[in-house]
Amino acid sequence: MTSFWYTYEIAPVFVLMEEVVLKKLRELIGWDGGDGIFCPGGSISNMYAMNVARYHHFPDCKQKGNWAIPKLAVFTSQESHYSIQKGAAFLGIGTDNVYLVAVDEKGKMIPADLEKQINRAKSERAFPFFVSVTCGTTVLGAFDPVAEIAEVCSKHRVWLHVDAAWGGSALLSQRHRHLLDGIERADSVAWNPHKMLMTGLQCSAFLLRDSSGLLQRCHCARATYLFQTDKFYNMAYDRGDQTIQCGRKVDCLKLWLMWKANGTKGLEQRVDRAFAFTRYLADEIKKREGFQLVIEPEFINLCFWYVPPSLRGQEGCTDYCLRLGKVAPMIKERMMKKGSMMVGYQPHGNRVNFFRQVVTNPAVTRGDLDFFLDEIEVLGRDL
């Protein structure tokens, strides 16, 4: 199989396959046209969005660099993925020019604070050019209110990017796609089928509402030894000049094969099953002594503490949080040394270490989830 491609003649089937898959993803967002490319991960997709947004506002930056444009301002929530910071650093915008917008108790960006931060940036003589909202934050699984944020972006003429790398696959579900209401108003979207849909790594799409060739103009170098202008076929199929990579792996094939095998209905059932199993696990946690939800799950991120018998009823003690924060790391160490399980944990804000379970594997059963909770009790009962 061809492992790299940049022109239509090298891999015509894969070029057409990518066209079909990207078109279908854009339709799920709610766009009739648009553009896009498969990228090596959501972080790169977010960086593409930032670069294209900068070019959209200041096309001269491609030739003249950042010296020819004003100081730029990026806006994202306190819960956003770290790739926004990395993108600002990588593109020469600077992490000091990333304005972190406040979130509510559920981890969702507050639109009023976004507008406040945009006005603050203007007062500091920066140019607000890029807002990145998150649909499915990494820890809590929060969905920013896209429709409300779109109003703010429209008012200030700021590019709206939706980082739906994690939560984008909820668009396949009629029952849960409301979580992304307003996403059709975005200028760009990052979506990783290799996350919730379990497509093989790597499979990440960068999607654009623009149909004018903005992606091509932003990244093209027009190398005549690859992208000749007198070819006999439509040069729009030479996708290599739309990317910073040139040659790419055929990431679209994985999703195309999965979609053909399962159908749209099958993928919807996979998404709905993940939500249902998360709900089952949350309900089981509520029934068990010593288990405590950090937050009621909106998505499939399930965050919880296990409180061992020695700490129950000790919430008022001055060292309670300190001791509770040591529980998850100790249980994690025990489960890995035993070889029974592996699950992540982390602190979050003023919350001490808690477990974060995400159930996406379509082969997982309720029995597996029961074992998961039972094993935590066994490993932590003497702490």
Rank of each mutant, 00 (worst) to 15 (best):
T199V: 05
G200S: 12
L201R: 06
L201D: 07
S204C: 11
S204Q: 04
A205N: 03
L207V: 02
L208P: 05
R209D: 05
R209P: 05
R209K: 14
D210W: 00
S212T: 05
L214P: 02
H219G: 08
A221T: 12
R222K: 10
T224R: 13
Y225R: 09
L226N: 14
L226A: 12
L226S: 10
F227S: 11
F227A: 09
F227V: 07
T229L: 10
T229Y: 05
K231V: 12
F232K: 15
F232N: 15
N234I: 09
A236E: 15
Y237G: 01
Y237R: 06
R239Q: 11
R239H: 10
G240Q: 03
G240V: 07
G240H: 03
D241K: 10
I244H: 02
Q245P: 08
C246Q: 09
G247L: 06
R248A: 14
V250N: 15
C252R: 00
L253V: 10
W256M: 07
L257K: 14
M258F: 04
M258I: 04
K260G: 04
A261L: 12
G263F: 03
T264M: 05
T264S: 04
K265P: 00
G266D: 13
L267H: 04
E268A: 10
Q269S: 06
Q269L: 09
R270N: 07
R270P: 05
V271I: 05
D272Y: 09
D272Q: 06
R273D: 13
R273H: 13
R273Y: 13
A274T: 02
T278G: 11
R279D: 08
Y280Q: 02
Y280A: 01
A282T: 00
I285R: 03
I285C: 06
K286Y: 02
K287A: 04
R288E: 07
R288N: 06
E289M: 01
F291S: 00
F291L: 01
Q292G: 07
E296T: 09
P297H: 11
E298M: 11
E298C: 11
E298K: 12
E298F: 06
F299C: 00
I300E: 01
L302D: 03
W305G: 02
Y306M: 02
V307N: 03
P308Y: 09
P309D: 05
P309K: 07
S310Y: 10
L311D: 04
R312Q: 12
G313N: 09
G313H: 06
C317P: 02
C317I: 06
C317N: 12
Y320M: 01
Y320E: 00
Y320S: 00
C321V: 14
C321D: 15
C321M: 15
L322V: 13
